[in-house]
C-alpha cells in the first residue's frame, strides 16, 4: 500500500509522570489534541506504526551508538523506566519483524541503518503510545535517531532518512503510519529544566508545518544547543517526518509551553499525498 498517516508529538516523561502538576485546563487541551491525532491515526486504518524517536540511553550507550537504528522484533517491552515514575504500566508491544526487515533492506540502499532484534522502549516511545495506541494492539516498528550523545547525524541526513523511509513504505503492501516524537527547545534533566524558548519553537514549527527543507536543515548543533538546549537536538525526529512528507504541508493541532513537563508540548499532523 503506502504511507497512510504522518504526525508528530512530544514525549516528555512529565506528560504522564508529573501530569497533575500542570495547569489542568492546559493539560486537558493537550490531552484532547493527542486524542485528535489518535483519531486521525485510527481513521487511516494502519497495519503498523513506525515511531521515529530519540531514546535517552535506554538501549544505546556511547560504547556503540548508532546514528540510526530500526527495530526488527516481533515484540518489544516498555517502559524501561520505573512504572510509577512514568505512570505507565510495563507491558509487551507487538512488532512486525517481516515488515521491519523489508523496510530496513530498502532504507539501506541509501542510509546505513543499524537494526536491533531486542529493544526496550523508554518514555520517548511509551508516552506517545499511551495516548495514540492505548490498547497496544497496533504493531510498532521503532526507529531511533541518536539525539543524545554527540557526534550526531547532520540534519540533512535526518531529512534524507525520512525521504528514504517514505520510499520504503510506499513499496510495501501494508498500510503504514509514521509518527515522529521529540522535543524542540528544552533543557531536560538539568538545572534549566522547564526553560522553553517559545519564539524558537514557533519559528521551527512554522518551517516544519510548511515543510521548508532548507530552513529545517539550516541549524548547526552549536546554534541548537545555544538557543534550544541539548533537548533541541531531538528536532531530528521532526525532520524525518518532514522528509517523509516532502512536498506536503501540515497542521499544528496544539502547541503550548508546559514548563513542569519541561517541553513545549506539540501535536501536529502532516498531509500524506
Amino acid at each position: 500500500m503506502s504511507l497512510v498517516f504522518a504526525g508528530a508529538c512530544s514525549h516528555a516523561p512529565g506528560i504522564t509522570g508529573r501530569s497533575e502538576r500542570a495547569d489542568p485546563k492546559l493539560r486537558e487541551e493537550f490531552y484532547r489534541n493527542l486524542g485528535r491525532i489518535r483519531e486521525c491515526l485510527e481513521a487511516a486504518r494502519p497495519d503498523a506504526l513506525i515511531v521515529v524517536a530519540a531514546e535517552h540511553f535506554a538501549n544505546f550507550f556511547m560504547d556503540n551508538m548508532p546514528a540510526y537504528c530500526m527495530g526488527m522484533s516481533d515484540e518489544y517491552e516498555g517502559p524501561i523506566e520505573d512504572e510509577e515514575w512514568l505512570a505507565i504500566k510495563r507491558r509487551k508491544i507487538p512488532g512486525n519483524p517481516d515488515l521491519s526487515k523489508r523496510i530496513i533492506c530498502d532504507v539501506m540502499q541509501k542510509i546505513d541503518l543499524a537494526y536491533a532484534e531486542e529493544w526496550k522502549f523508554d518514555h520517548g516511545i511509551m508516552v506517545p503510545l499511551h495516548f495514540l495506541t492505548p490498547r497496544y494492539d497496533l504493531p510498532v516498528v521503532p526507529v531511533n535517531i541518536n539525539c543524545q550523545g554527540p557526534p550526531l547525524s547532520p540534519l540533512h541526513r535526518a531529512y534524507e532518512l525520512g525521504r528514504t523511509l517514505r520510499a520504503a513504505c510506499d513499496a510495501q503492501p501494508e498500510r503504514i503510519a509514521l509518527l515522529g516524537t521529540g522535543g524542540m527547545s528544552h533543557w531536560p534533566c538539568t538545572p534549566d529544566s522547564g526553560k522553553i524558548n517559545v519564539p524558537w519553537d514557533k519559528a521551527f514549527l512554522d518551517s516544519f508545518i510548511h515543510n521548508r527543507r532548507e530552513d529545517l536543515i539550516s541549524y548547526t548543533d552549536e546554534e541548537i544547543f545555544a538557543d534550544a538546549g541539548q533537548g533541541g537536538f531531538e528536532i531530528r525526529t521532526f525532520l524525518t517526518v518532514a522528509g517523509a512528507t516532502e512536498g506536503s504541508t501540515g497542521e499544528l493541532l496544539f502547541y503550548a509551553p508546559i514548563p513542569v513537563y519541561a517541553v513545549g508540548c506539540t501535536v501536529a499532523t502532516m498531509a500524506v499525498e
Binding site: 540511553f57 520505573d82 543524545q148 531536560p188 534533566c189 538539568t190 538545572p191 529544566s193
Partner: peptide
C-alpha cells in the same frame, strides 16, 4: 548527562524537585 543522572537520582530516592535542587 542528565538523561542518565536523573535515573540515578530516582534510584537513591530523590524526588524530582530534590534532583533539580541538587544540581
Amino acid at each position: 548527562n542528565g538523561q542518565i543522572l536523573m535515573h540515578y537520582s530516582a534510584l537513591i530516592g530523590q524526588e524530582w524537585d530534590e534532583y533539580i535542587h541538587a544540581m
